[in-house]
Design a protein around this nucleic acid. Structure first.
Length: 415
RNA sequence: GUGGGUGUUGCCUAGCGGUUAAGGCGCCAGGUUGUGGCCCUGGAGAUCGAGGGUUCGAAUCCCUCCACUCACCCCA
């Protein structure tokens, strides 16, 4: 028997209310903040991600679904959305639109990882990006947006963690200092850190291996080596956040898993419970558009994992709206009645009434049982008598009351 | 990639060396005429994750593999 591939799953009807709820909250927040929806391809030229996200990252090195199509092109299922949005920004000349361009997307992302609670190989992403403005007020607005999103969902137990990791000007000097701190101890650190030291020294900081803790704890922090502009930018972001009364926690070791980040980085972390350390995250990427071959344009954005949000909703017992089911079930007895029933179902649907008609030639008893099991509030019963009289018996399933009504009165009785 | 846990019908579970693998939920049907839910009766549905081994005999013991799951790593 076939099964869904490892790390993928079916989102069954009973779970749909959660997805609809999250999507509805996401689109609502985006509407309020003036973000427009963009739908992006699920696969791209794999180079877009290797150049954008960065070659030294886990996502590119071991988690990307790369494949060659029949034309010999190297493509990759998107592991995240930011690179694609930047590509679209360039491809469609969006620098000619009023800046910043504000876009959001909802859809799956793919990473080849060992699945576990809240982690899938295909997972739902909601993200938004503002490209074309370096104003720290925009950083604050994006963080505010993430905050308001989680608040509007009803989630209570989460924290915003904030850091600044410098820019093209100050990062090189910082990395030099960081490497100087590590080089006397390079034999003591874990195997991963030895690689990080060479390929991606920023990542040394968020190693959690016990043998690296002391050295990571005592390592110089990026915020101590920011240039004047980055210091000011970071101070402004924090000032705006404070005036918006967004609580945040600074963590000088927050690094994030993508190479494109500059200056502001942040993460939304659950305070407890779930083993996954992040509900969402984002940051500024002032060099990415340029790195992808465009005229320089700063950007900032964030992305969230929908499965993890839903997990949080379920853990916190947050009720979500139920989705409406059919309003009417049509039961019938006899061939003529069946003809009438089929036509009635169609007429009612034209009047925007959701109808299920019995099929399969079952007894009336069985048809009513089915209506009951489907939780449909009203049943129209049509037999030979009703066909002759041009009526139906309309039964209320909750009260067991029923009355005979003319066919043509049904739309107004149900509408 | 590394480690732990678990695999018996659509779902939950019993059985842990000896008849046709049992029960609950759900599904389907019946309990006289055209009426659901409660109750009663019946039915369908399981190559006991797969392969191999031990044994007169394996769902049950052993080995291998696979899947699921949780955690690490990393991330949404």
């Amino acid at each position: 028997m076939y099964r869904a591939p490892r790390g993928t799953r079916d989102i069954l009807p009973q779970e749909q209310p959660y997805w609809r709820y999250v999507e509805q909250k996401a689109t609502e927040i985006c509407r309020l903040y003036g973000y427009e929806r963009i739908d992006l391809p699920m696969f791209e030229d794999s180079q877009l991600f290797t150049r954008g996200v960065g070659e030294g990252t886990d996502i590119i090195e071991k988690e990307m679904y790369v494949f060659e199509d029949r034309g010999g092109n190297s493509l990759a299922l998107r592991p995240e959305g930011t690179a694609s949005v930047c590509r679209a920004y360039l491809e469609h000349g969006m620098h000619n639109r009023p800046q910043p361009v504000k876009l959001y997307y909802i859809g799956p992302a793919f990473r080849y990882e060992r699945p576990q609670a809240g982690r899938y190989r295909q997972h739902g992403h909601f993200g938004c990006e503002a490209i074309g403005d370096a104003d720290p007020a925009l950083d604050a607005e994006v963080i505010d947006m993430a905050w308001q999103f989680f608040v509007s969902l009803g989630l209570g137990r989460f924290t915003i963690v904030l850091d600044s990791i410098g820019c093209r000007e100050c990062r090189p000097a910082y990395l030099t200092v960081l490497k100087e701190h590590y080089s006397p101890h390079i034999d003591e650190v874990c195997a991963d850190c030895k690689v990080r030291f060479e390929k991606n020294p920023m990542r040394l900081l968020d190693c959690r291996s016990p043998q690296c803790q002391t050295i990571a704890d005592t390592a110089p922090k990026s915020i101590g080596y920011l240039c004047m502009e980055c210091i000011e930018h970071y101070a402004e972001v924090k000032r705006y956040l404070s005036s918006l009364e967004i609580p945040f926690e600074e963590n000088p070791r927050l690094v994030r898993g993508f190479d494109y980040y500059t200056r502001t980085v942040f993460e939304v972390q659950p305070q407890e419970g779930g083993s996954q350390s992040s509900l969402g995250g984002g940051g500024r990427y002032d060099l990415l558009v340029e790195e992808l071959g465009g005229k320089p344009a700063p950007g900032i954005g964030f992305a969230t994992g929908i499965e993890r949000i839903i997990l949080g909703l379920q853990q916190e017992n947050i009720p979500v709206p139920i989705l409406p089911g059919p309003q009417l079930f049509i039961a019938h007895l006899g061939d003529k009645a069946k003809d009438t029933a089929l036509k009635l179902a169609t007429d009612l649907r034209h009047n925007d009434i959701s109808v299920i008609m019995a099929t399969g030639g079952r007894s009336l008893k069985a048809q009513l049982r089915q209506a009951n099991n489907l939780n449909i509030p009203k049943v129209a019963i049509i037999g030979d008598d009703e066909v002759k009289a041009g009526t139906v018996v309309l039964r209320d399933m909750a009260t067991s009351q029923q009355e005979t009504v003319p066919l043509e009165k049904l739309p107004e009785l149900l509408g």
